[in-house]
Design a protein around this nucleic acid. Structure first.
Length: 676
DNA sequence: GAATCAGCAGTTTTT
DNA sequence: CTGCTGATTC
């Protein structure tokens, strides 16, 4: 029998809710995951077959966490519940319904890197004059239009990016089709296309009896539509989220989904979880005071039974350097008083802000980790290796093919590539065909011709083998391919420092190991390589080797966006200044600070015991010292804020700085017990 | 091809 | 000021 005694009344109400739509407005730290897993367990207990329950999250991490916690309640049955991300759900649909979606069986999934490769290529082909435009910005414009299902890119600012995007949009769509590739957005958009077919729609609306959605405030219009289709038959859709934590509107999320859930799903029961189990009352009072200034929101006033705690500290600092010093000194005191480094987080609006904290922490020998940045799959050698697999799987994938046509160097220069591409276009049979039939039709230098021939001869047979690889042969075949093409050798030949070389070899081997592991875990019956590439495309972001060890004993540095969903006993929210939070772009472009305020709120509500919010009065930007204004959000805090001033009339002299560093260093060593 | 230079822009990133 | 990109050069 499921134990509901540890749930509070609204939590229990959400868990026990039977049929029909349910909206759970779960404030920060109010135990929403708890509610979801208990609800799933409850449904199973009431006789619902686990495979007819669908739980949707945004991240793999959240899905995995949910699965683990569910196991704690229902044991092995947890594996039968369909828990996945929205994108993985889209893929599940497309795997079965690709024909109705206008795809062929072996379609590839393009990640952001692949998409950028395509945009750069299109830029090269069509906008010779504008090559230096940032491909990513153009891609953003294209994707925004595509998500809205517009026929053309809409002009908003009318800048060069939008103009380029306007030209490239149709080409982008056309090429993706030619490559038999879909991007992340397409996983949902194409799934929706497939669901327009009556048979398909009937099949999928029959599939699940109960739906549960986490982080509903971050869902997009497409995701809403998908839910409506899946829930059409029964309306059993339970969504959990917090409109006050909606921080992804810029990526296509519609806050309106959660605000108008009841009108989208008639008969909705609404439950508010406002008891917070994370923070002290002082922290919540400040957070509540800030967020209440947002206009369109479901009002929630968070409270907790964890006591008043320390007041929130507002710290005015002379310069950004002072701010860093203040933070690091305070960390020293906290640690001296028994806090662990991994209890502490430094949160900021933009990644650039991490630099000064990284430097200062390193100087004081305080262990830290920076969350974000380049992921494993973005490393060159890994992307190259994966590109070989992509081409083996789908030779029409010309982004991957162009990436590796001359990797490692085999004498096929830019001009030769261009000729091959032209030939491929002219014949309409694509680059791969051109490469295999270079013969007499294409004018190539002898070196290029020889390189091409040897590539085709080596790659072709092993690629065929790889494509048909089954359990037990996928990893070894890939290894064979990498060796035959000399990937490993080229890393050694690059002759970088021994450390770097070793790391890159290790990264390459990691790919082979990932393939081997996949053979062991997958239940896929179809082509193994295809599935591996798809699954890996959807799990790239979080496959960073982030063990518990990686976090242990380290101060965490990350953006406010990355901090969502996490908590730390001690939080430093830094750079709480106009033009940073709210960000300059928001101030310049529109009038809606709502999302920036929510970001501030998300940051504040990460803190369990103590929260510092700091700003600098001057800050070096682009090489100039600029005066700064405290964020408007600070004015919204309950009076009287505690201001700790750390002004300095003039910058410290070198001697002062040295003396201070020495003193601090000695203190820190004593505190941490670190040897010189 | 690798090295160097000039020019430019400068948020956030679950998949 | 930095970091990246594409162009230029040897």
């Amino acid at each position: 029998m499921l134990d509901l005694s540890r749930l509070n009344p609204p939590q229990r109400e959400a868990v026990l809710h039977e049929e029909g739509p349910l909206l759970v407005l779960a404030g920060a730290g109010s135990g929403k995951t708890r509610v979801i897993i208990h609800r799933v367990a409850r449904l199973i207990e009431r006789g619902v077959r686990p495979e007819r329950i669908l739980g949707v999250t945004f991240t793999n991490k959240a899905a995995n966490e949910m699965r683990e916690r569910l196991k704690g309640l229902v044991g092995r049955t947890a594996h039968s519940v369909h828990l996945s991300t929205f994108h993985a759900l889209g893929l599940s649909i497309l795997r079965e319904e690709y024909e109705a979606a206008g795809l062929s069986a072996g379609f590839s999934i393009y990640d952001t890197g692949d998409q950028m490769g395509l945009v750069r290529e299109l830029l090269r082909q069509t906008r010779v004059a504008d090559r230096r435009l940032d491909a990513y910005k153009i891609l953003e414009c294209i994707l925004a239009a595509k998500r809205k299902r517009l026929a053309e890119v809409e002009f908003d600012t009318g800048d060069d990016y939008e103009l380029a995007a306007y030209d490239l949009y149709p080409r982008y769509v056309e090429q993706m089709r030619a490559y038999n590739a879909v991007d992340f957005d397409d996983l949902l958009l194409r799934a929706m296309t497939a669901l327009e077919n009556q048979g398909v729609r009937a099949r999928w609306s029959q599939r699940y009896d109960f739906l549960l959605v986490d982080e509903y405030q971050d869902t997009s219009p497409d995701q809403l539509e998908l839910l409506q289709v899946l829930a059409a038959r029964h309306g059993n859709v339970c969504v959990v989220g917090d409109d006050d934590q909606a921080i992804y509107a810029w990526r296509g999320a519609a806050v309106d989904n959660i605000l108008s859930f009841a009108s989208n799903f008639p008969g909705t029961r609404e439950i508010i979880l406002d008891q917070n189990y994370r923070s002290t009352s002082n922290i919540l009072a400040s957070a509540n005071a800030v967020i209440k200034n947002n206009a369109a929101r479901k009002e929630k006033v968070l409270w907790s039974a964890l006591g008043e705690g320390e007041p929130v500290q507002i710290v005015a600092c002379g310069t950004a350097e002072d701010e860093a010093e203040m933070v690091i000194e305070t960390i020293g005191k906290l640690v001296y008083d028994g806090a662990k480094h991994d209890d502490i987080a430094i949160l900021y609006r933009a990644n650039v802000q991490s630099q000064i904290f990284e430097e200062t922490l390193a100087l004081q020998h305080i262990p830290f980790r920076v969350v974000g940045g380049q992921s494993f799959f973005d490393r060159k050698e890994v992307r190259d290796a994966v590109a070989f697999l992509q081409v083996a799987q789908n030779p029409y994938d010309e982004v991957a093919l162009r990436r590796i046509i001359n990797v490692p160097h085999r004498g096929i220069g830019a001009t030769s590539v261009e000729r091959l591409v032209q030939y491929g276009e002219r014949t309409g049979k694509g680059l791969w065909h051109a490469m295999n039939n270079a013969g007499a039709d294409i004018d190539l230098p002898p070196a290029a011709r020889a390189g091409l021939q040897s590539f085709v001869d080596t790659f072709g047979p092993i690629a065929r083998e790889l494509k048909q690889a089954t359990r037990g042969s996928l990893g070894v075949t890939a290894h064979k391919l990498f060796d035959a093409l000399g990937l490993r050798q080229s890393i050694i030949d690059a002759d970088e420092s021994p450390n770097v070389t070793a790391k890159r070899i290790e990264n390459l081997e990691h790919v082979t190991r990932a393939l081997e592991r996949f053979e062991g875990y997958t239940e896929a019956s179809g082509p193994l390589l295809t599935e591996f590439l798809r699954v890996s495309a959807l799990t790239r972001g979080d496959s960073e080797p982030e063990d518990e060890d990686e976090k242990k004993g380290k101060v965490t540095l990350m953006t406010l966006h990355s901090a969502k969903g996490l908590e730390f006993p001690y939080v430093f929210l830094v750079g709480v200044e106009e033009e940073l939070l709210p960000h300059k772009r928001t101030i310049e472009m529109g009038l809606d600070f709502g999302e920036e305020r929510r970001l501030c709120y998300v940051g504040m509500t990460r803190a369990r015991k103590r929260l510092w919010m700091s700003y600098a009065k001057t800050r070096m930007r682009y090489g100039r010292l600029e005066p700064r204004t405290p964020s408007r959000f600070l004015d919204e805090l309950p009076e009287p804020p505690v201001i700790e001033r750390r002004d300095r009339e003039s910058p410290p002299t070198e001697d002062e700085a040295d003396a201070k560093a020495d003193e601090f260093f000695a203190k820190m060593r004593a505190t941490l017990g670190i040897e010189e």
